[in-house]
């Protein structure tokens, strides 16, 4: 069997000392050694964004990070997003149907979290750009964009009405874009 290393990772603010194959990526270590299967994978080649996690606060692709290179770094995954309550992003994604099959969702949530922490009032163009490395095949992105904007408003402490309610049903839903 392949060479193993023992390393200590700081995942969702918890230290974990783990032995794992030396050549494994962060994706494999999170899913297989830590049992944190919330982080998904869609290509393992850096082409789809599904496996996005935060490393020292920046979204990175866990499939292209050799695990041992981030020993000691702060690693955040979807499992750490929720405190006693859902994170505002989780609430708005759930309420608006921004997660359909839900497979790309953990990666997009993490990229969105980094965005709204760095830019509390992102423009719609910022949201699209920041998430543009994350593919979603279900939603057509619209609900995701709305959910991020709504969550940003909630994080800013604004009451933040559900964006689409007023005109959701049976009538035209106009959305400014860009």
């Amino acid at each position: 069997m392949s060479e193993h290393v023992t390393a200590t990772y700081r995942v969702n603010s918890e230290g974990r000392t783990i032995a794992h194959p030396a050549h494994h990526t962060l994706l494999e270590v999170l899913r297989e050694a830590c049992g944190l299967t919330g982080t998904k994978h869609g290509c393992e080649l850096g082409e789809c964004g599904t496996c996005t996690v935060l490393i020292d606060g920046e979204p990175q692709l866990s499939c292209l990070v050799l695990a041992r290179e981030v020993e000691g770094a702060a690693i955040d995954t979807v499992e750490g997003l929720e405190g006693r309550d859902l994170h505002p992003l989780q609430k708005t994604f759930a309420d608006l149907g921004a997660a359909q099959c839900g497979y790309c969702t953990p990666g997009i949530l993490m990229a969105a979290k980094a965005l709204i922490e760095r830019k509390p009032t992102p423009t719609r163009a910022d949201v699209c750009e920041a998430l543009s490395g994350n593919l979603c095949r279900c939603t057509g992105y619209i609900k995701i964009i709305e959910a991020v904007e709504w969550a940003a408003a909630l994080c800013r402490g604004e009451s933040g009405a559900r964006p689409a309610d007023a005109s959701l049903y049976g009538v035209c839903k106009e959305k400014p874009h860009g």
Partner: peptide, 12 residues
């Protein structure tokens, strides 16, 4: 899942 081959890693 696509996986890396084995190699010796040198963290310079």
């Amino acid at each position: 899942m696509m996986r890396l081959p084995t190699f010796t890693y040198v963290g310079a």
